[in-house]
Structure formats: C-alpha cells, structure tokens
Design a protein around this nucleic acid. Structure first.
Lengths: 234, 234
DNA sequence: ACACCTTTTCGATAAGTTATAGAAAGTCTC
DNA sequence: GAGACTTTCTATAACTTATCGAAAAGGTGT
C-alpha cells in the first residue's frame, strides 16, 4: 500500500486490463459515486471493485476494511469547522457570525457524499479509527456555543443556555440535512440552500429579541460567507 | 401462521423444549429487547431465534422476512398522531397545543425501541409494506402545520410559512431524539424529558412575538398533556 | 386402531456479504 | 538472469438472510 503517486506501476497486471492510474484515488472516487447513489451500507465491496476495475479481494490490498474507505473520505468532514474557528475569534455582532456558521454547516452536510447519520453510525462502530470525527463535532459544538454566549453577553440574544442552543442548532442541522437528502413522500423537497436557510433561520429566530432583524442578519451573514470564500481561495 | 392465542399447541415440538406460549408475541418481545440493546441492523435472526427458544429457520414460519418483525412493531409508531389530531381540532391558543404536540412526539421517539432513522431506513427499503409509516408522518406534518397556521392567523405567532416551520420542528425532534439515544462523546447527555423540552422550546421560541411568554406556554402545555393522558385512560 | 390432514419445527442448503491466505505475474535492482 | 518487491489474482472461511422439504406432533373421521 505504498505507491499511489507513480505512473506505470509494478505488480501483477489486472485481469480487466484497466488503466491502473492511481488505484487508491480511483477506488475512493468510484466508492463515493456508489455511496452517493445507494448509501454506504447498501454498497458492497464487489460493486466498488467492479467499478474500479479489479477483483473484490484486491480492494483489501488498498483498504484493509470497508470502513477504511470511509475513513479516507472523512478527511474533509465538517470542514465548516474552519469557518467556525475563524468566526468565533472575530469581533462584531454575534448573530451574523452564528448564522454564517450554521448555514455553512448544513451546506456542507448536504454536499457530503454520505448522510451524516450513516457516517456517525460507522464512526461509532470504530471509535479508535474515527476519533477525529467526534473531536471535530465537539469542537464545532464548543465554537457554536461560544458564539451564542458572546451574543448573550452582548445583550444581542435572549438569555439562554448557550450549550443547549448549540445542541439544538446542530441537531436541527443534521435533521434537516436528512430531509434534503431523503425527502419524505408526501412532503415538499428542499434544495441544499433552502434547508440551510431554514435551519439557520430557525436557530437564529429563537435567539433574537427583535425577530424582525432576521433579514438583515441573513444578508450580513451572506457577506461574511463570501468574504471567507474569497480569502480562503487565495 | 394462525394460532398465537391458544395454549397447548400442535406442531412439532421444539428441540429446546421451550414453553411455546404465544410464539409471535414471544419473538416480538425478544426482538425488541435485542433491537434496543444493539439496534436493528446489528441484530441477527439467529440471535432472535436463540432468545426466543427456536431455530433460526423456524423464525421464518412466523415472519417471512426480518422486516416483518419490525413491521409488527411499527403498529404504535408516532402514536403522538392521536394527540395531534385531537389538539388540531381544538379551539383556544395555538401555542400550548403546538408545544404539547411537539413535546409528546419527542417523548415518543425517545421511548420507541428503535432509532427513528433506523426505522425510516427500513421503511424506505420496503415502501409497499411501510406505507403507513409515511402516511403517519405526512399526517403529523400536516396537523403540525395546521396548528402553526392557526397561531399565525390569530396573530399569536409571527408571520411564517407554516409548512416550513413544521418541517423544521419535526426535523429538530428527530435530530434531538438521536442525541438522546446516542449521546456524542464530549457532549453532555440529555434525558428524554430534557430533549423534549429543548426541542419544543426551540420550535416555539422562534414563533413567539413575546419570547418571555414561553414559560407560561410550557405550563399550559403540561396541563393539556396531562388532561389528555387521563381522558385517554378512561 | 389407523390413515390422513393441519400446524409447527427442524436440518440442509443456496446465494450473498466481509475478510484472509497464499499463489501468481508483473517490474525493478544488482 | 537471480532474487526482491509490488500488486493482483483465486480460493476459501465465516457469517448473513432466506427457501425447501422432511419430520414430529395433535386432531378427525372411519
């Protein structure tokens, strides 16, 4: 399990005569496509192997367990953490910062290849391998609660328990992510942008003494987000 | 697959010499215990059979598929629907009624033998068998939205899209149910009552023009709920 | 007493899953 | 070329869910 960057490759040739460019990346790419289409549990190693152009058992040369494919894919999980870290340390009104963090989190959950809960299930079954997942979650929770606390201290928000509010906000993010991913029959379906807005709106609305200010906050948050995106690119 | 109520029973005796009282019920009972302990997907038919005192293949005489055990167990899913139906038709302030419905829903999700999402996953894989599940969900959503709409019309709530609010409220219920069932490492854990209150508080707070009235509403909802429980018993 | 039907359980087994072991088929180094 | 290294293969173990037909009881009519 070493190469992966080199080109022509050694080793026994594939029976399928497949290109064998960068097996590890190829496998991950094909696995993602299948996970998106059918979910993790419903995707078999045989299917991934077929898509990637090798035999089922050959996958185990690159990934010792099915989980490990997921783990490789986890690296950029909850990357909204970076935004949260930056915004928590920032000064200024708490409301737009909180809005931006929550909105970005839902957007990220929606665009991830796997349902958050499916991910969490696997992470829970392999805590030693997925410690980073739980660390990230705890960090996001702490940062969220901290921004809420800032808002409460500044009199910008109602007096609430900031930890409870963070729990509810993240729980709502996850619950609505699910509604985006798997719309329930009989209910309207939402776009990623729509659920993100619905979630952030809901969490913010409960904090504001003057609910009418929500539209301004939404606008301000949009500004913060786009600033972040442009600076992050450079 | 007929008897199930009678006592001594015909048929080939069990190898285990087990009591063979009411096999169907016995199986369901043992299955629930295992589902609660390990979840649906992680519980095998062999384990259920061992607990119930017969062989793995004999289970299939009573339940043609593993799903069917779940289905039998589904009958009382989202029974908060009954409360919602009653309260939607009731007159009076919308806020306490909405609070009571949301609170009862989370309590029910928390006390169910299975995680809501695990249930939903199975239901989705067998839509023809689990139609009732989705029907109930759609009904609960409709009733919730209707109560919200009543509150908006009466000027009791802020002007919001009642369907969106219902989606967010139910999504929050499900998300927090998960936090109760599977507390994330690093975060505090909540009791069923605590998550129910957190969820209902959050959903209501975003609707109220005067957030300070939440405590009264919470009290009033408690009254409604206990009234319902006493009349339902008689 | 006995043949026959119904109910329930069992053993054997098929087809699919994740994962392991060791042989095989190339390239690379000396 | 000889040998080492890398990668893939085949074969197979152990475990799933699910099916099939035989087996073991009770009940019924003659």
């Amino acid at each position: 399990m070493t190469r992966d960057a080199s080109r022509p490759a050694a080793g026994r040739p594939r029976l399928s005569g497949a290109p064998t460019g960068s097996p590890r990346q190829d496998i991950i790419r094909e696995a993602i496509a299948l996970f998106v289409a059918k979910g993790y549990a419903e995707t078999t190693m045989s299917e991934i192997a077929r898509s990637a152009g090798l035999r089922q058992s050959s996958l185990y040369y690159w990934f010792a367990r099915k989980d490990n494919i997921l783990q490789a894919l986890l690296e950029e999980n909850r990357s909204s953490l970076a935004l949260a870290t930056a915004l928590e340390a920032q000064s200024g009104a708490a409301a737009p910062r909180l809005y931006a963090v929550l909105h970005a989190d839902v957007m990220q959950l929606c665009s991830a290849p796997l349902d958050f809960y499916e991910f969490e299930r696997v992470a829970r079954s392999q805590p030693q391998n997925f410690g980073a997942f739980f660390d990230d979650y705890a960090a996001l929770h702490r940062l969220t609660a901290s921004i809420v606390h800032q808002g409460v201290s500044a009199g910008e928000f109602l007096a609430v328990d900031s930890s409870d509010v963070a729990t509810a906000a993240l729980g709502l993010n996850e619950g609505l992510q699910r509604h985006y991913r798997q719309p329930l029959p009989g209910l309207r379906s939402y776009s990623a942008e729509q659920v993100s807005e619905l979630s952030a709106d809901t969490s913010l609305a409960r904090l504001l003494a003057i609910p009418e200010s929500l539209p301004e906050i939404r606008m301000a948050a949009r500004g913060i987000t786009s600033d972040w995106n442009t600076t992050a690119e450079s």
